[in-house]
Design a protein around this nucleic acid. Structure first.
Length: 550
RNA sequence: GCGCCAGUAGCUCAGCUGGAUAGAGCAACGGACUUCUAAUCCGUAGGUCACAGGUUCGAAUCCUGUCUGGCGUACCA
C-alpha cells in the first residue's frame, strides 16, 4: 500500500468517527509539500471542512489528528501547520518497504489497472500519402505513440491507427504530377498540373518508375496512365512513410484506407442515417448538416452542388466506422490547421447518437524548425519540406522523441536543430540517459568486486538524506504515469525523468555505492537498482533507449 | 469581426488541475576529478507569473475585460 492510500484510508475513518464527513463525501487531497520541512505528505481536508462545519480549520485539524489511528512504525509524526494543513512524516522503514515493492514489481512498476481494458483507439500522423513525412508528423508520431504507451500502462486496450487518405483530388494530382515528370524523363511533354506536387521526391519517383518499368506507362492512354501512376506512387510513398516510422520505433496496428470506406458506400449510409434523423436539409443544390444544433457555429455541407461527397462526410463515416469496430473511446491527434474542424465532427457524432465525450481531439501544435537562428519554412505543396527522415538522420531517434514529448502538445514548439545536434551538455536526453549508464557501470563494478544484490536485501542501512529523497522520488512514478495517461499529458514523463536523474546524480556525488561495508553496499545496490528500474520503465514509455554505457 | 492556442528568469520550458516562501535546464560568474564515468556535482546572481478587475481562508492556476503573438474561420482535402 502506498503512503497516500494508507493515509487516505485512515483519514476517511477519522472523519467518519468524528462525524465530519461520510466516506466519499469529500475528496481527501494528499500532496507532497513543496518544502521538505513540511513533511512527506500533507492534506488540506481540515481547510476544506472549515466552511461546511463553520469552524476554525486549525481546530478541525486538531480534532482530526486526535481521532487518527496511525501505526507509529509507518507514520512518525502528524503536525498541524499554516492555515490548517496536516503534515505527515513517514518512518524510514516505510520507505524501505516501498523500495522493496519497486524491486519486486520490476518492469511492471508504474503500471495501473484503472483503464479496465477499455477499448481505445488513437489515430495519429495520418498525413497525406502524397509525399514524405515532415517534421510536424514526427511530433505527432512521438506524442501519439507515447500516449498509446501510457494508456496501455494503465490497462487500456489500445490500437494505433493511421488513416490513409488514398482517395480524392490530391491522389489524382499526385498521379498527374508523377506522370508529367515521368513523360519528361522519356523525352515527351505533358503539362504539369496546376497545384501539382513540385517536390524533388516526385522526380525521384518518376526516375524509379523509368528504371523499373521503362516506357510501359507512356504507351497507355493518358487517363489510364494517371490512374496507374497515382496508385503506384501512392503505394511507394506509403511504403517509405512506413519505413521512416519503423525506424522511429513506431508501428501502427492498423492502416485504414479511405478508399475502402468509399467503396463500401459508408458515407452514403451515414448520410441516410443523418437524413432519417432529420439533421439534413437542402440549400443551393447542396445537402447540409444542421451542425449548429449541436453547438457548431455554422451548418456544414455534406454533398456538394455537383453531387460529390465532401471530405467531411467521408470523415464522419470514418469515425462512425471506428465505433462500429468496437472502440469505446476515440482519440485523434490533429494538426493546428484543423482545430476549427473539431466542433463539426463532434456535432456529427453526437447527431449519430454516439456518447458525448467519447471522441476527443488533441491538437498538436506547430513545429518551428530553427537552423542557425532562423526559421526554416516548410510547405509540402511548394516542395520545400523538412523531412522527418532528415531530422532523424541529424539528431537521432532518442533526441527527436524526447524533444517532442518534453513540451505540452498545445504549445508551439521551437526545434533548434543545431542545439539538438550539438547536444553535449545542454541536452536533457543525455542527462537522463547518463544516469542509467552510470548505474549499469556501478553494478558492473560491484559484481567485479564480488558484491551483488541478494534476493532478500536488508535495506535498513539506507538512512541518509539523499538516499531517502531518492526513494521518495521513485515512489512518485506510478502517480506520474497515471496522471500523464489520465490528462493525456505525456510531457510529464520527461519532466519527471529529469527530476529523478537530478536526484540520482546528487546522491552519486554524496555517497559511494561500492564500499568495504558490504551490508551498506548491498542496500545501496538495491537503491540504485530501483532507480534503474524506474528509468528503464520510463524510457520504455517514451520509446527511447536505456544505454548501458555512454 | 468571431473561434482556438499561447504569454512565468536574458533564452527554452516545468509548475502535479486552487495550497504554504515561484522551479529546472541553458547562458553568466565562482568552486569540485588520485574516487563507482566531470555527459556530473556545489554555490552566486537573475521574477510586477502580459495588464486590470473579480471569486475566497488562499490565485501563476478559476471568472470577466484589455493588450500582444500564432493558427483557423471553403460546396479544399
Amino acid at each position: 500500500m502506498t503512503g497516500t492510500e494508507y493515509l487516505s484510508n485512515r483519514l476517511t475513518t477519522a472523519l467518519k468517527k468524528k462525524d465530519f464527513a461520510e466516506p466519499g463525501e469529500i475528496t481527501i487531497g494528499l500532496e507532497r509539500p513543496k518544502f521538505a520541512e513540511h513533511g512527506d505528505l500533507a492534506t488540506n481536508v481540515a481547510i476544506l471542512l472549515a466552511r461546511k462545519l463553520k469552524r476554525n480549520p486549525r481546530e478541525i485539524a486538531t480534532d482530526i489528528v486526535q481521532a487518527l489511528e496511525l501505526d507509529p512504525d509507518v507514520v512518525t509524526s502528524a503536525e498541524i501547520a499554516g492555515a490548517g494543513f496536516i503534515n505527515f512524516r513517514f518512518g524510514n522503514g516505510f520507505y524501505h518497504n516501498e523500495l522493496r515493492t519497486i524491486l519486486d514489481a520490476g518492469s511492471r512498476f508504474g503500471q495501473a489497472d484503472w483503464g479496465n481494458k477499455k477499448r481505445v483507439q488513437i489515430e495519429f500522423v495520418s498525413a497525406n500519402p502524397t509525399g514524405p513525412l515532415n517534421i510536424v508528423s514526427a511530433r505527432a508520431a512521438a506524442v501519439g505513440d507515447v500516449l498509446a504507451n501510457l494508456l496501455q500502462a494503465v490497462d487500456c486496450d489500445v490500437e494505433r491507427e493511421y488513416y490513409v487518405n488514398d482517395a480524392g483530388r490530391q491522389i489524382r494530382l499526385l498521379g498527374m504530377s508523377v506522370s508529367a515528370r515521368y513523360m519528361a524523363l522519356l523525352g515527351q511533354t505533358e503539362d504539369f498540373p496546376e497545384e501539382g506536387y513540385h517536390g524533388l521526391y516526385i522526380h525521384e519517383l518518376a526516375q524509379q518508375l523509368v528504371d523499373e518499368s521503362g516506357d510501359q506507362f507512356a504507351k497507355m492512354e493518358q487517363a489510364e496512365r494517371w490512374k496507374a501512376l497515382s496508385e503506384l506512387a501512392l503505394e511507394k510513398l506509403l511504403a517509405s512513410q512506413k519505413e521512416v516510422l519503423h525506424s522511429y520505433r513506431l508501428n501502427f496496428d492498423s492502416w485504414f484506407r479511405e478508399k475502402k470506406l468509399r467503396e463500401n458506400n459508408s458515407h452514403i449510409d451515414v448520410l441516410k442515417t443523418l437524413t432519417d434523423k432529420g439533421f439534413v436539409f437542402e440549400k443551393d443544390g447542396a445537402k447540409w448538416f444542421k451542425s449548429t444544433q449541436f453547438g457548431d457555429e455554422k451548418d456544414r455541407v455534406l454533398i456538394t452542388g455537383e453531387g460529390e461527397p465532401t471530405y467531411f462526410l467521408v470523415d464522419v463515416a470514418y469515425h462512425a466506422d471506428k465505433y462500429n469496430r468496437g472502440f469505446e473511446k476515440l482519440h485523434d491527434l490533429w494538426g493546428p490547421d484543423h482545430h476549427g474542424y473539431i466542433k463539426r465532427m463532434q456535432a456529427a457524432l453526437l447527431a449519430l447518437g454516439y456518447q458525448e465525450g467519447s471522441f476527443e481531439v488533441t491538437i498538436i501544435q506547430q513545429v518551428n524548425l530553427f537552423q542557425k537562428g532562423e526559421v526554416v519554412k516548410m510547405s509540402k505543396r511548394a516542395g520545400k519540406i523538412i523531412e522527418m527522415k532528415e531530422l532523424l538522420d541529424e539528431v537521432g531517434v532518442d533526441v527527436a522523441r524526447f524533444f517532442f514529448i518534453a513540451r505540452r502538445t498545445q504549445s508551439p514548439l521551437d526545434f533548434d536543430m543545431d542545439l539538438a545536434k550539438n547536444t553535449s551538455e545542454e541536452n536533457p536526453v543525455f542527462y537522463v540517459q547518463y544516469a542509467h549508464a552510470r548505474i549499469c557501470n556501478i553494478i558492473n563494478k560491484a559484481v567485479a568486486q564480488g558484491i551483488s544484490l541478494p534476493k532478500q536485501v536488508n535495506l535498513s542501512p539506507l538512512d541518509k538524506k539523499e538516499e531517502l529523497l531518492l526513494i521518495k522520488k521513485l515512489i512518485e512514478f506510478p502517480q506520474t504515469v497515471s496522471k500523464a495517461a489520465k490528462y493525456l499529458e505525456p510531457h510529464r514523463i520527461p519532466t519527471y525523468l529529469q527530476e529523478l536523474a537530478a536526484t540520482f546524480h546528487k546522491f552519486y556525488h554524496h555517497h559511494r555505492v561500492v564500499t568495504d561495508d558490504v551490508e551498506l553496499a548491498q542496500a545501496r545496490l538495491g537503491l540504485i537498482k530501483g532507480v534503474q528500474i524506474v528509468l528503464a520503465n520510463a524510457f520504455k514509455l517514451l520509446g527511447i533507449s536505456a544505454p548501458e554505457r555512454m
